[in-house]
């Protein structure tokens, strides 16, 4: 099997491994223990495997591991932790935006990338941003609510708007 030495950063930590060239970034990350990156389809159809690659959300199943060399990968563990939740994580929990949770890591990363670029998106822009991340449980409404709550507008409001559920 053809292999190459691959070196990249995951959530700030340097990773180095000898990997078969045909392995995708998704497969590599999961084998390295980053199982928070979910495998839903391996074709770029569902977004479960979303990671940030140099800050940009991508399907990690559509990137070869060797292509990540020298780059920075962020998984959902890189944006917050149990005792230090990212505001998006907090709002996903509080709004009931998490049911089975399988789409959640990818969904959160797509949302984070949007807010990094545009701190006050509209609901429509949020829906556009997460349109490559499928969710089979929630019907997306509470996910959009949770992201909306995390926008600068939402934070300004300072409290939950339980009925603001237009989608």
């Amino acid at each position: 099997m053809k292999t190459l030495s691959v070196q990249f950063k995951v959530n700030g930590e340097e990773v180095q491994a000898e990997m078969p060239t045909h392995i995708t970034l998704l497969q590599a990350l999961r084998e390295l223990g980053y199982t928070e990156v979910k495998n839903g389809c391996e074709k770029g159809d569902c977004g479960s495997c979303t990671v940030l690659l140099d800050g940009l959300p991508v399907n990690s199943c559509l990137v070869l591991a060797v292509q990540a060399t020298g780059r920075e990968v962020t998984t959902v563990r890189g944006i917050g932790s149990l005792d230090n939740l990212h505001p998006l994580q907090k709002n996903f929990i509080e709004h009931g935006a998490i049911q089975c949770g399988f789409c959640t890591p990818g969904m959160l990363l797509s949302a984070k990338a949007l807010l990094d670029e545009n701190p006050s998106p509209t609901r429509k822009e949020i829906r556009e941003q997460i349109s490559g991340n499928l969710c089979r449980c929630t019907g997306y409404v509470k996910i959009v609510d949770a992201i909306m709550e995390t926008t600068s507008e939402g934070s300004k409001a300072g409290k939950r708007r339980p009925r603001a559920r237009k989608c």
């Binding site: 199982t35 998984t75 932790s81 939740l85 949770g101 890591p105 959160l108």
Partner: peptide, 8 residues
């Protein structure tokens, strides 16, 4: 949902 949100 807490552990789901942080990928644990």
């Amino acid at each position: 949902s807490l552990e789901k949100a942080v990928g644990e």
